[in-house]
Design a protein around this nucleic acid. Structure first.
Lengths: 209, 209, 209, 209
DNA sequence: GATGAATGAGGATTCATTCAT
DNA sequence: AATGAATGAATCCTCATTCAT
């Protein structure tokens, strides 16, 4: 849960600076769309060679970025074990909306590239999925067992997808999708949607009965 | 001197062949992750130069691929006007699962690149969103007006996201996410989810009662 | 004196059109600086291939342009045989200032490229040089025989150089170097310079004495 | 990330070597007529990429070549301030004949390309023109004021033109135009011509009187 | 006489990476 | 820890040219 990783991640300031700018670039343009030169330049290095002092190669840098990016998400999730879904969603939204690069980074990594990368991401998301399963199993709703993975994955799509693909949302929303207001609407929407999907209907039913 | 006018799209076989292989590559690796050389080679061209007879440059080819890819989706949607949501979902799933490259292509284009590309995609999705609005407005559910865009966008995420990010789903599903069985489960899940989100359950409930 | 050349120069309108636009481009950017594609496009051809119906290859086109360009210059010079230098200068200036591409074309060809080209140009200029020799030999001035080629070549430089390198003249002239006024000044200058160089001054001197 | 600041011109040996071979090539074939690959190869680089460590791009290299080439010319001229025209001509001839690439380089740059280049050249020649004006204004000759720029420019043509277009001179000279003998003849010619143009005649007149 | 298509070679430039300093 | 220099391979794209139609 510490993250670990190939080179254990020493914490020099330059290394962190590189990770910062790389995160930004990779989130925006993907692995293949970014050059080492650009990252080095953004990090204030006068030479690309310097970067190789901190990371074995471009791919290692990419993976370090992903790993570092996933860490806080994992923490948020870990902290939420045994909490009800509502607060988890809240915390995820808080985190994702404060670090807008993160969802795109994860989104891309899941879409992109080698098995290796996807394994990292999938593995990191595992706890989130588990929480989902837990929460569902505590609720009394008529989903069949075989539906559960689809439901969990769907919730993941709803939560992360919004922040990852903000720009596609733009044409149909009155205020910019990354505005405070829009994010709060999305928060409310997600909670309602979650409630409906997770079985509030039943509650309503019993209330109605 | 050639270029294949922006939207004209003459239908020479070579041009189509190029589009086919480019679609595959772009869907798999994204714009920056594919080289013109590779596409040309895949298309059986002895030389990259030949490709430039059909497309002004790499980007133009990419956009042509997107445009061609979006077309059938748009048709499916257009045909579904005034139909209930259920069948629309069915048709979308049929289409997306038969053309597995398409969702990833769209997903990437929405994530990626220039405003231009995103405009194409967003514009193409517009009718889908409109159908969503229509369907919702006909249902009797307690969504507030300002929630509607979020709901519509959420449904889009649920439908396309599954096919676009199959591989992230793999660790938590018993059968491969692109297997017949998994797709049918996803279909059922989507319909149930849609029903719950859209509020139809109520009708069913009352009917059942 | 007809020009002749490799392919005898049929006179189709397209061929002439190509020559026109090629002349312009070659004069402006030199042989290597122009692409066949550009010339074809300028000539309204939809395809570069069409150009090869009229000229064996790029080089042949270039030579045809030079040859065609030199022709009228040669004629002007030929007509001037046995005339005094003054009128020859006048006619040359008239011609060069009306066809501003010509001097640059010749200038470049003399500077550029293969022996072949330079031979064409040098050969075409031969009569001009001969006229120079004639005129000088008729004047009574103290140039020694071995100076004569230098003098003749110098006059060539003065006459053609002005029009070929207008832009270098720009910073030191009050009116644009290709303006009517500037050209008339250059005309007057050339005549005076010629008179001084060729020895007419003497006549003036003796007249003055 | 490198680039060799616009006018800084660090003096690494490789950089100078590149400049040397580029000067030669550019003088002979012009900007468009030379490939970066050729220059890199001539400079002993195993790879074109190395060249880009020293110059941002081909054009920057070209401009550096021009700038470096103009420098000594400018110095020669600067040193000659307030000297009579004769010695200036001598020094220019010495310099130009020892560096035979230079005149062609300048000639081409003045003929060629972007405003930028021409500005560099024109600006560099400015002092030469000024010296010309000075010399003329000290002589007592009947040129009218408005003729002066033309006269100065004419002298420039005579001096540089010979060396720039040697090959056109070849057919009419007994010894090769770049032979010692021919250059000395040109030197004598230029001085005589200068004397005649600049008004020494008068001096002769007064001497005769 | 004109054109669409194709192609080998080469254009400039950038890639990620290494190595000596 | 950082950098200047170098490099092989690859990038996208254009070159001049040919050929079937």
């Amino acid at each position: 849960m510490s993250g670990g990783g190939d080179e254990a991640g020493q914490q020099t300031p330059t290394r962190n600076l590189i990770l910062d700018v790389a995160e930004k670039r990779f989130a925006e343009h993907g692995f293949a769309g970014v050059s080492v030169r650009q990252i080095a330049a953004d990090a204030g290095l006068k030479n690309q060679a310097s970067l190789y002092h901190h990371f074995k190669n471009k791919r290692a840098l990419y993976e370090a970025v992903i790993q570092r990016g996933m860490e806080p998400v994992i923490e948020v999730i870990a902290r939420s074990r045994n909490e009800p879904a509502g607060p988890v969603i809240d915390q995820l939204i808080d985190h994702l909306s404060e670090k807008p690069l993160l969802p795109r980074l994860i989104w891309r990594a899941g879409l992109d590239e080698s098995d290796e990368l996807r394994r990292i991401v999938a593995q990191s998301l595992r706890p989130l999925f588990d929480i989902g399963f837990d929460a569902i199993s505590r609720s009394e709703l008529e989903w069949e067992d075989e539906d559960l993975p689809h439901l969990v994955f769907g919730l993941f799509q709803l939560i992360f997808g919004y922040f990852a693909q903000l720009s596609l949302f733009e044409p149909i929303t009155p205020t910019p999708p990354d505005s405070r207001a829009a994010i709060e609407r999305q928060r409310r929407f997600l909670k309602k949607a979650n409630a409906r999907l997770m079985g509030r209907p039943r509650a309503e039913k019993s209330a109605a009965g």
